[in-house]
Structure formats: structure tokens, C-alpha cells
Write a protein that binds this DNA or RNA. Structure first.
Lengths: 187, 187
DNA sequence: CAGAAATGTCAATGCTTGTTGACATTATCT
DNA sequence: AGATAATGTCAACAAGCATTGACATTTCTG
């Protein structure tokens, strides 16, 4: 006890959970402080305020070294993460946090920018072939949509599916996204 | 002027826009009243309170008769709606509203239930073939994900695409979703 | 036209929010 | 040990929130 770093860590941990579940504007500092067993005033002291605390949680939110590592296939990394019940909840909460805050006038632009810098730009750089930008967008769309349907909407066709089936659904959609080619014959 | 129905309509219109853009908890009645040029107190008078006003916007939110009509192909209806710039913004805001409120403890279950009753169940009823439930979930996932990527995340690969290209992307993903079959050879 | 009902306006309520400053406690260093 | 800085605690603040009731105005009705 007595170490400010511990307090900071406890605050970030509690803030991450609450911010991601409820969104930025819908989260009160008092709730975070309560969850962290820390006085509310320390948030303003250590992070300068609510926005500072949110920024602090953002920096660790998008860290996903395996995904951007050149040794791994991003597709397999994603499927393994999202089809594994242990990590699916966490990954899905990240997505929900992005979606929920992307339109917040206070933090929306910050969230989008951080997402691009830390994840999307590296992914696009590794992505070869024609229409790389378009196919990346479709790839992200599929992952986001599946997560939303599975966890937020809880549709039976995905929410109750066992991990194996869900993994096949996800793989099917991802491969379709990456196989997109602008072919005039498609019209 | 002077007609309460007009006031009610103005309130519902303003509330729909604000609720769907910012989410339920993040919207203040004062802002709605201001946008509708109506006194705040009338909201509680006419709709019983904030929740009542939200429910009133919900009932009109999911009305989409063309989609559930047996005369039309749902796929084409969706593509036409979402690839048309005039209606895309509105449709996307509906989706964003669903996603943003699906986890709200106050209105989440209400939103999910209304969505299922008015849209998903009729769609599933019309959907034949094996794994209908799973393919419907994938279909919804694709539409939601594309909307989120295009409007909320604003990824260049989808946000800046002209309607034609976006329509092709959407169609490609939808067809992939509907073509899903659980085939052991996929493993 | 007079009375009644409907509709709109305004102020005040109690509650929650983020933030700040004063004070108490604990740790650190000479 | 004693001075000094770091850390934690508490109370108060101004602002915004949803909601309510009293009052003013308009509209309808007999």
C-alpha cells in the first residue's frame, strides 16, 4: 500500500472494465473509484480528470502484438482469439467499446485515431494484393459484426453456437471478405 | 400550433435522432426539448418520462415492411437500402442505436426483444434451407459490421467508397453469409 | 359569450456528476 | 528523530439531470 503506482493501476483496471462496458459518458468516476476501492479525488489528481483516465485506458486497449507480428497469420490469430471462450469476452468488449464510443463527441475521434494507428495501419501495411484497403475494411466489418451479433444482440444462431461452429462461421466470413475482388462480372 | 399531436410528433422526431445518435443514457431530455422547440416538462406530461419517450421512438424504429414482405427478396432490399446514400444514413443510425443500447441495463432487453419480434423472427420464418438460424445470424452480422465500419469507424476502404463499390462489397459479404453450410470438409 | 378542458410556461425539487481545496496520514531522506 | 514530500481522506462546489406542481394561455364546448 501507499504506493501511488498501485493506486494508478487499480484505477486503470477498474476504469477499463467500466468504460468498456458502459461507454465513456455513461460511466461515473465515483463508480470507478468504488470498484477500485480508491477515493474519487485521486482520479483527478493522478490523471488530471475523467478524460485523462480514459486516455490511459486507451493506450493499453489496442495492444495486440500477435496480430501485427509478421510471424503470424492475422486470420488465424483472430479466429483463435474470438472462437476461444476465454478470450472472446475480452476481445468482444474491446469491440463494443470502440463502437459505443466512436460517436461520442468527446472521445470518438480519439478512439478512432488510436484504433487506426495501433491496429489498422499495421494490418493494412501487411496486406498485399489489389483492393487491400477495401478488403481490410470488409475483414474488420465481419469481425465486428460477428462480435456484436454474438454478444450484444445475442442471436441464437451465433450466441448459442459452440466454439467450433462459431469458429467455422467466422472463418467462412473472413475468407469471403479477403477474397473480395472487384470484378465487373459480379455485376 | 396548439395541437398536442404536433408536439408529440416533434418530440418523437427529435428524440429519435438524438437517442439513436448518442444512446439512451447519454441523451438529456433538455436537449431533445430544445431540438424540438418544446418545453421539457411536456415530455414527462405526454410520455410519462424519459423511458416512455424512448419506447415511443422504438415502435417506429424497426418498421421495415418491404423487408418482411413476401414479394421482395430481402437481400436486394437490404442492399438497395444500405447502398443508397439517401437511406444509408438512416438505416445505419438504426443499427448504431441497437448496438449502443443493447447493453444498457435500462433499455437493453427492450431493444433486443423489439428487434427480434419485428424484424428477425419474420426473416427467419422466411429463410429456408439448413442452418437457417446460423445463416441469418451471419447475414445480420455482415450488415451490422459493414454499417459500423462505414459510418462509425469510417475506415477508408468502406467509408469513402462510392455507392457502387460499397454495394458490391455488401453483396459479396451477404452472399457469403447466406451460402454458409456446415460442411466437415471446411475444416 | 362564459365556462371548462386542453395545452403550454416557468420555477423549484432532489439527485448525480466532475472537480477542487483543505486537512490528515504515511513514507522518504538528511 | 525531525523535516519534507508523497499520498490518502473528506467535504464542498457548481453544473446538469429528470421530474413535479403551480400558474398562464389557448382551444374547445355548451
Amino acid at each position: 500500500m501507499g504506493n501511488a503506482d498501485i493506486t494508478r493501476d487499480k484505477l486503470i483496471a477498474a476504469a477499463t472494465q467500466t468504460f468498456w462496458e458502459q461507454g465513456y459518458s455513461n460511466t461515473s468516476l465515483r463508480r470507478i473509484a468504488l470498484a477500485a476501492s480508491v477515493d474519487v479525488a485521486l482520479i483527478s489528481r493522478y490523471f488530471g480528470g475523467k478524460l485523462g483516465l480514459f486516455k490511459a485506458t486507451l493506450t493499453t486497449a489496442f495492444e495486440w502484438p500477435e496480430l501485427v507480428s509478421p510471424d503470424n497469420d492475422p486470420i488465424e490469430v483472430v479466429i483463435n482469439k474470438y472462437a476461444n471462450p476465454a478470450s472472446d469476452a475480452h476481445q468482444t468488449s474491446v469491440i463494443r467499446m470502440i463502437v459505443m464510443n466512436a460517436n461520442d463527441p468527446q472521445v470518438g475521434e480519439l478512439v478512432r485515431q488510436t484504433l487506426r494507428d495501433t491496429l489498422l495501419d499495421p494490418l493494412e501495411a501487411r496486406m498485399g494484393g489489389p483492393k487491400a484497403s477495401e478488403r481490410l475494411a470488409m475483414f474488420i466489418a465481419v469481425v465486428i459484426g460477428a462480435s456484436m451479433v454474438r454478444q450484444s444482440l445475442q442471436l441464437p444462431g451465433m450466441a448459442t453456437a459452440e466454439p467450433d461452429l462459431y469458429a467455422r462461421q467466422l472463418r467462412h466470413l473472413i475468407e469471403a471478405a479477403l477474397n473480395f475482388r472487384e470484378d465487373p462480372a459480379d455485376l
